[in-house]
Deep mutational scan, measured.
Amino acid sequence: TTYKLIANGKTLKGETTTEAVDAETAERVFKEYAKKNGVDGEWTYDDATKTFTVTE
């Protein structure tokens, strides 16, 4: 399944996707990606669109 991340960070803005077996796995991947890019904010997830959003 393809999951999408929308990053609304102070230093990183944009979108990326990952293939994962479930939302929990995708969330781990995206949180690691955000951490590597210095983004720390509020996370939301929309199951209907398989989209995570992080906003600083």
Rank of each mutant, 00 (worst) to 15 (best):
V21Y: 13
Y33W: 15
A34R: 01
T16S: 10
E19M: 14
E15L: 13
D22S: 07
E19N: 12
E15G: 07
V54E: 00
V21F: 13
K50V: 03
A34D: 01
T44L: 08
E19V: 15
Y3I: 02
V21H: 12
G41A: 03
K13H: 11
E19I: 15
A7G: 05
A23N: 06
T51P: 00
G38I: 04
D40M: 11
G9W: 06
N37Q: 11
T51G: 01
N37V: 12
N8P: 05
G38D: 06
F52A: 00
Y45L: 01
E24I: 12
K35M: 12
Y45M: 01
G9Q: 05
R28G: 06
Y33M: 07
A20Q: 08
G9F: 11
Y33D: 02
Y3M: 01
Y3P: 02
E24A: 14
G41D: 01
A20S: 06
G41H: 02
E32S: 07
Y45H: 01
D46M: 04
T53Q: 06
K50S: 04
I6R: 06
T17R: 08
L12D: 05
A7Q: 08
K13G: 06
K35V: 09
N8H: 13
Y3A: 02
D46W: 03
L12V: 10
T51A: 03
E27P: 00
E32Y: 05
T2R: 12
D46E: 06
V39F: 14
L12C: 14
Y33I: 09
Y45K: 01
T2Y: 10
D40W: 14
T25R: 05
N8V: 14
E42H: 12
K50F: 08
Y3G: 02
K10R: 13
G38A: 06
V21A: 14
N8Q: 11
T11W: 13
Y3R: 02
D22T: 05
T18A: 07
D40E: 14
F30Y: 02
T1C: 13
L5R: 00
V29M: 10
T17N: 05
F30C: 00
E19Q: 14
E19A: 07
T55C: 07
V21K: 13
D47A: 14
E32D: 12
A20W: 02
E32V: 05
Y45E: 00
A34H: 02
F30H: 01
Y45I: 01
A48M: 11
T53C: 07
T55A: 06
A23D: 05
E32R: 06
K10A: 12
D46G: 01
T17E: 08
G38C: 08
T2D: 05
F30D: 00
A26N: 00
E19Y: 15
A48H: 10
T18P: 01
K35W: 10
G38W: 04
A26H: 00
A34S: 04
A23R: 14
T49G: 04
D46H: 06
L5C: 08
D47G: 08
T17S: 11
V21T: 12
F30N: 00
N8G: 05
E27Q: 10
R28K: 13
D46P: 00
N37R: 10
Y33G: 02
T16V: 15
G14T: 14
T11A: 10
E32W: 06
I6M: 06
A7M: 15
A26M: 02
E42Y: 13
E15S: 09
D40R: 11
Y33T: 04
T2G: 04
V21E: 12
A7P: 03
K10Y: 10
D22Q: 03
A48P: 07
N8R: 11
R28M: 10
V21S: 11
E19H: 13
E15M: 13
T18Y: 12
A23C: 13
A20C: 09
N37L: 15
T51S: 05
T25F: 06
G14P: 08
T49D: 04
T44S: 13
L5A: 02
A48E: 13
T49F: 05
E19S: 10
K50A: 04
T1M: 11
K10G: 11
K36Y: 08
K31N: 04
Y33E: 03
T18K: 04
G41K: 01
Y3K: 02
T25M: 12
D22P: 01
F52D: 00
D40A: 11
Y33C: 07
T11E: 09
G38P: 01
D40H: 14
V39S: 03
T55S: 08
T25A: 12
E27K: 11
K31E: 03
E32M: 08
T25G: 08
E42G: 05
D22F: 03
K4M: 09
L12F: 15
F52R: 00
T17K: 08
T2M: 13
T25K: 06
T2S: 07
A23I: 10
E19G: 05
A34E: 01
V29L: 11
T1F: 13
